[in-house]
Simulated assay, not measured.
Amino acid sequence: MKRRTFLKVAGAGGASAMLAGCTGDGGGQQEPTTTTESGDSTTTTNGTTTGGGNQVLTVATYGAFVDAPSSSPGVWLKQEFESEFDATLEWQTPDAGVNYYIERALRGVESDADAYVGLDAQMLVRIDEQLDESLFVPAEGLSNLGDVNEELEFDPQGRAIPYDTGYISLVYDETQAESGTFTAPETFDGLLDSEFEGDLLCQNPTSSATGQAFLLHTIDAKGEDGYLDYWAQLKDNGVRVLGTWEDSYTAYSNGEAPMVVSYSTDQVYAKESGADLAKHQIRFLNDQGYANPEGMAQFADAANPSMAAEFMDFMLRPEVQAEIAVRNVQFPATTTAELPADFAEYAKAPPEAVTFSYERLKGNLSEWTDAWAQEFASK
């Protein structure tokens, strides 16, 4: 593949763009959208009570958690939480994701939110690298904390508590073959075979959480000294690097390539929407999937810290964990959630989960992604 073509689809975004939300892109610092219910009482945008006397809990997250076109947990969580607690739950969804709150902290401006939903280890490392004081505080008093799968815990300081996890894998379309059935390779090395030239769509690791997870998996597979050479070989074999997961999955859905880097729960949504499962096959390269747990944390300057803790504990309840998993099409973070049979059948877990710890990422993540950008997005 010619360099010009590769760079056109890869883009030239800097690594700082990854400070955006888990499924969103970086953006400007416009005010976030706040979602609440209209009624007789007047709701504040940054206060702690409404005119009706009940408390206001402001929770920041990425947009798809609240308003995904398929299904998303946000509306259901708001209804369930408000039905039990004397509180109004407001969602904030700035386009820039958590970067919006980092910029506020850098300017000495309060966050005006109580909790954040949608952190991962990579984001947490970048936050800590940019701020002298922590944006979040350790979670305290959570009765359901012991139910969290220890293998998914990624914050050694106990601030970000996992609430779900996804596994990054290949999704491929068996029907995209000139003759016979298309079958994805089984290994990272197999992606370099000439028979798969131009067949892979992936995401820019400097602007996509999914793309960054795939980059980290290649570093695990090929080592710090070999991953850039591996990406050079991928480029020579015609890999297309698009900006976001949405960009690449749309291209895949349009039949532009038979393979895309995505999530191993892909068949869950495909089954629900009546899609042909032959177009949604899962491949774990090297029999591995990169685990990318999402976490929630309380802002250090939360106006309503006690209610934020109540909300986080609520998120870890078995029935809530199961509902989040189904609606967010991810795996639960706790060991107590009972998933519906059809979800458990179509959500694929890898034989082996791979992930980098906070300690492994700290001091290395920016170097790795910057090196990738310099080699493949800056020339």
Rank of each mutant, 00 (worst) to 15 (best):
F136D: 03
R360E: 14
A300M: 04
L201S: 00
S248F: 07
R317T: 10
G47W: 06
A96W: 09
W372A: 00
Q157E: 15
D147C: 07
Q321P: 01
S273R: 14
G13A: 10
G238Y: 04
S143V: 13
T334W: 12
N304E: 13
P318K: 06
A337L: 12
I324D: 00
T44F: 13
L145P: 04
A322Q: 09
C202K: 00
E178S: 08
W368L: 11
Q233G: 12
E178D: 14
E197N: 09
S111T: 13
G238T: 05
T88D: 02
Q203P: 00
D40I: 12
N149I: 10
S262W: 15
E174H: 03
G180P: 03
A344D: 13
G226C: 02
T45V: 11
T48F: 12
G108E: 01
C202G: 00
G243E: 05
L228G: 03
P293N: 04
M259R: 01
S378N: 15
L7M: 02
G47I: 06
E246H: 08
P318L: 07
N149E: 15
E186P: 05
Y252T: 11
A344P: 06
L215Y: 01
T34L: 13
V109G: 00
A275D: 08
I127R: 00
R3H: 06
W91N: 02
Q321V: 05
L192P: 00
H217V: 02
Y172E: 02
S207D: 10
Q330R: 15
A87V: 15
N304R: 11
D173V: 12
N304P: 05
P156Y: 15
A337M: 12
